[in-house]
Write a protein that binds this DNA or RNA. Sequence first.
DNA 1: CTCCATTCTGGACACGTGTCTGGACTGGTG
DNA 2: CACCAGTCCAGACACGTGTCCAGAATGGAG
Lengths: 195, 195
Amino acid sequence: MSSPSSHESTRRRLTDQQAETVRRLTEAAREVLHEDGFEAMTVRMVAKRAGVAPATAYTYFSSKNHLVAELFWRMLVSSVPEPDHALDITERAAVVLRDVALVVAGEEQLAGAVTVALLGSDPDVAHLRIRVGGFIRERLASALGLPVDTDDERVELLEMLYSGALVRAGMGYQTYSDIADRLAGAAKLLLEEHP
Amino acid sequence: MSSPSSHESTRRRLTDQQAETVRRLTEAAREVLHEDGFEAMTVRMVAKRAGVAPATAYTYFSSKNHLVAELFWRMLVSSVPEPDHALDITERAAVVLRDVALVVAGEEQLAGAVTVALLGSDPDVAHLRIRVGGFIRERLASALGLPVDTDDERVELLEMLYSGALVRAGMGYQTYSDIADRLAGAAKLLLEEHP
DNA sequence: CTCCATTCTGGACACGTGTCTGGACTGGTG
DNA sequence: CACCAGTCCAGACACGTGTCCAGAATGGAG
């Protein structure tokens, strides 16, 4: 067999072939989510579009929530790079928040779906929840020039702010670019007064 | 029949008898949620505990989400009073946020359940979502001494903050009294610099 | 080319959701 | 008292979820 390679968060040690199946599933999930929304989306629908039997989908994802959470994780990691050290602290934080907000922009249904999915209770989702939370905290702390395990009040505040932004985007209270701007603005407001 | 009286957000014009049935259902929902959590909770379970047939529950609530959203609405309205005009602006805002956070404190599963429920897509949930959002905005605007329809940036920021706090509470990142304190603190941080 | 482990499949399953019936109960009204 | 509108109920329904398993397909090693 081909040697196990990637360390995606789905299962430990996937072969290339398996990784490809997973990739097709998350991609199909993104499409279905886009076209039909989270509640109308069914796992069997996603499996069909990925050209895979439903049972196969369930060998990689323990639940619909897990599937969506994994999709978000992939988009997040690929869209929120390490902060640019050329910028100053405030700018860096603003950019991180903007990047996070923009992950779900353009995918009308994604923000709400992700929030719901990440609140799920199965162990795979819990695992991903930790990873997502940790990743964003890491990026924010890094932007502020702090260690990941900081207990700085401002980091926690910014985390709350982005969670709230996602929810409110999912509820349709604001548009996504609105949200991105507002988050960036909030970061500046907060940090310029409390450097 | 007894004259229609209350104008709960469930259905227009309930008789006293109906209102009592609805009250028992929401109360039962609170108990089941507390004991079994959101995902384990079933509508039939709640109906049974309320001493009512499942079909009856569905005549008052169009979905599990609607039921939970209604429960939250009732707790919210009864726990977050008009801000006290004796306090100053900053204190008033802090108190509102603390009150909102405390609505879900002590009910381990409620924060996550409510967030998920309010993100649902059926029309009754959408209606309740508007009411909840409007209510909190009204309280916050009032605390800041602004009209409800203000477009003040700080109100929107505080709204995002409380949404985020609820999510993170639901995810178990923080305890509830933590959250209440942190929200109150955040309000002060934001408002004292930008009065 | 054959073998065999890995991967995928198809279909059944138990259970929850939300909808829809016709019929039974209830309590004011004529 | 008999009526009847307003409620509630029991149970069937279509459909989605997540689980399971025997067997077919696949593809690298000998």
